[in-house]
Design a protein around this nucleic acid. Structure first.
Lengths: 208, 208
DNA sequence: GTAATGTCATAGCAATCGGTCAAACTATTT
DNA sequence: AAATAGTTTGACCGATTGCTATGACATTAC
C-alpha cells in the first residue's frame, strides 16, 4: 500500500519535471507526449497511463508552478524596512529565475501564446500583486520611499527578473561568453537591486 | 513584368505578416503551415509554392525583424545629452513593443526555445549592444551619469520594454481591466523612464 | 496457493504534420 | 491565335500526432 503509493508519487513527479523541461522549450503545441515520455525515461503508453491527457498535464504543471511561486514570493513580510523587503524580494526572485530558468520560460511561453489556458491560476497571482500594492502605497503615504506607481513598479521588477531566466541563452550571444561559463549572479543581482532602490530614492550614491 | 512582380511581392508580404502572427503564438514547432496559409487567406499548397520550407519562412521572418530593429533602436544618436538619449530610446522601444506585440512575442518565443535557429542574426544585435556600451561607458568616465553596468543596464531596459509586449494579456488579469480597454502607454512610459533615469542619477526628485 | 489488482509494452487507431505532384487555370510573350 | 510561363488547385505521400485496446507481467489481497 504505502510502498506502491510512494512509487506512484515518484513517477508522477518525474513526469511533471520532464513535462516542465519539454514544455518550456516547445510550449504546449510544440511538445509531443513522445518527447515528454522519453525525457522521463518511460514509454509513451506508460505516460498516458499516468496522465489523463497532454492538456491536463500542462494544466497541472502550470498550477504547480503558480502555487510554488506564491510560497516563494513577497509574503511572509520578513521586515518592515522597505529597503530590506525590496532587496530580499529581488534577490529571491532573481535567484529563482537563474536557478530554475525552465520554469520561468514555461511561464513566458504560456503568456506569449495568448493565455488561452490558465483558468483560476491567475486569481492567485493577482491576489499577491494586490496585497503588495497596498504595502507599497502605505510606504509612499508614510514618506518612506519616493512616489512610484505600485503596480508598474512590481511589473517592472517582474520583467527584469523574469527576463534573466532567458539570459543564459541570450547573454552568451550578447557578451560572447564561452559556453560552459556560469553566469555572474552577484553582478546581475547588484545591478538590479541598485536599479529599483534608486527608483525609490533609497540609493546611497549621490547625483553626479 | 512589373505588374506580376508587384503581385508576387504583395503575396510574399502577406505571407510574412501571417507567419509573424502565427509563429508569435505557437513558436516554430507549434505552428502548422496550414494555419499560416489560412491566416494569409490562401491554401497550404499555394503557400508552399511561395516558400521553400516552414523553417526557411521562419528564418526569413526572424531576419526581417532583426534588421528592422537595428534601424529603429539606438543609433542615429539624436543628441549628446544622456537624459535625452535614454528617454528617447525607452520611448521608442516601448512604443514599438506596445504597437507590435506579436513581433516581440515571436522573439521571446525564439529565445525561450533555446536559440537553436538564428544564425548570423545575433551578430547584428550584438554589434548594436557593443556600440551602445561604449557610449554609456564614455558618459560614466566623463561623470555625466552615475556608474552603471553598461551591459546589464541595456539588458534591463530591454527586459522591461520587451516585457510590455506581453503586458496586454497579463495586465488584463493583474489589474482586472476590461477587455476592450486600450493600455495607458503614457503611464507605462513615464514609470519606465523614471526607473532608468533614477539609476543614472538623472532624476529630479529628491530622496525622502 | 488463487484471485484480484495495478503496471507495463506492443501494436494500432484516426487525424494531422510538412511537403509534393500533375493537371487545370491565368497571364504574358511572340 | 498559338505558345510559353506563371499560378492555383485537390489529391496524395510517408511520417508523426494524441491516444487507446489488448494482453503480458508484476504485485498485493485473501
Amino acid at each position: 500500500m504505502t510502498r506502491a503509493q510512494k512509487k506512484r508519487q515518484e513517477m508522477r513527479e518525474a513526469i511533471r519535471n520532464a513535462a516542465i523541461r519539454e514544455f518550456a522549450q516547445g510550449g504546449l503545441a510544440g511538445t509531443s507526449t513522445q518527447m515528454i515520455a522519453q525525457s522521463a525515461g518511460i514509454t509513451k503508453a506508460q505516460l498516458h497511463y499516468y496522465i489523463a491527457s497532454k492538456e491536463a498535464l500542462y494544466q497541472e504543471v502550470l498550477g504547480h508552478i503558480v502555487s510554488e511561486w506564491r510560497e516563494i514570493f513577497f509574503l511572509g513580510p520578513s521586515s518592515d524596512d522597505p529597503r530590506e523587503v525590496i532587496t530580499s524580494y529581488i534577490r529571491r526572485k532573481l535567484k529563482h529565475a537563474l536557478e530554475h530558468p525552465e520554469i520561468s520560460r514555461l511561464f513566458a511561453n504560456e503568456i506569449a501564446s495568448g493565455v488561452p489556458h490558465m483558468p483560476a491560476h491567475w486569481d492567485q497571482l493577482r491576489a499577491s500583486v494586490d496585497e503588495a500594492s497596498a504595502v507599497i502605497r502605505a510606504w509612499i503615504d508614510e514618506g518612506r520611499i519616493a512616489p512610484v506607481d505600485p503596480l508598474l513598479f512590481q511589473i517592472n521588477i517582474w520583467a527584469v527578473t523574469q527576463h534573466y531566466a532567458e539570459y543564459e541563452a541570450q547573454a552568451r550571444v550578447l557578451t560572447g561568453a564561452p559556453e560552459g561559463q556560469p553566469l555572474d549572479a552577484t553582478r546581475i543581482i547588484n545591478e538590479a537591486t541598485q536599479l529599483f532602490l534608486s527608483r525609490c530614492g533609497l540609493t546611497e550614491q549621490g547625483t553626479p
